[in-house]
Amino acid sequence: MTIISVRNLTTQFSTDEGEVRAVNDLSFDLSRGETLCIVGESGCGKSVMAMSIMRLIGRPGRIVSGEVLFGSGGSSVDLLKLDESDMRKIRGKKIAMIFQEPMTSLNPVYTIGNQIGEALSLHENIRGATLRRRVIQMLDMVGMPAPERRADEYPHQLSGGMRQRAMIAMALSCTPDILIADEPTTALDVTIQAQILDLMRKLQSELGMSMILVTHDLGIVAEMADRVHVMYAGRFVEKGNTEEIFGSAMHPYTQGLLRSIPPLKKAPPDSRLPTIPGMIPSLIDMPAGCAFADRCEKVHNDCRGRDVPDDPCGVGRLVRCFYASQK
């Protein structure tokens, strides 16, 4: 059952050099209880997409077209058409978000208990001792040691992992339907990463949430995802379930990403880890044609100058490449 359906979402930023189309005609569906991973390198528009769904894009950015249909069946609403006060009732209550930087996403002047209580007091109108009980319950749920003491501590007194736990407690305090996690573990070291991911998976199944996980770490994707959407220069270039992406990637970009993971089996002594040459192109006034063409090893002359449809090779899922093949 689909809980959120994003249709042709396009977000642009006005700059002095021209219009930057950071998110270009994205469409996807998310089912109840499902985990969708959005993968791509830095600057491909992953975070802008996440912020666009929450309608948290500020100037000079704006959402120019598309629909974000939230809810199932006939009762769905287009979040992009809601007025601001109705949208506020969705944020934090129905759709919650975890940010990349646990260090700076907590306000340094309030205790974490106070901040976790903010969404609760906004949406469920509870105060005083009841609120405190709920906050401590949340902290306990995210595995914070000594929750009653931690609730009265300030962000600077907590370690990075504990702050991210506090952020998760904050996001989940109103048991949202959808959790959008924007690189939730990037700022944490590897052992803490594993703990946080375990925690998120456990809470997801307990609360029956859907999750959109934005990341550039393919290890996390393999661990967490039900379905994977690979993003490049503001567009999805390949969609598939986890087996399809890791087992039979069709798009040269996805294949390049997968090759750049260090292999576990012994590599020849002086071999180098393959990388994708070049950089993500400037998104200002993009020419028609495949955005990956300049870095692609399978590039043909006719890749440029014409727009690539969703599935030109008839793979049966979105693979935005004229020359998609498994090898």
Partner: peptide, 16 residues
Amino acid sequence: LPFIDAARASGASDLR
């Protein structure tokens, strides 16, 4: 700063 976005994402109004 990110905590302003975080506050907006949890449904706080501009005045708040």
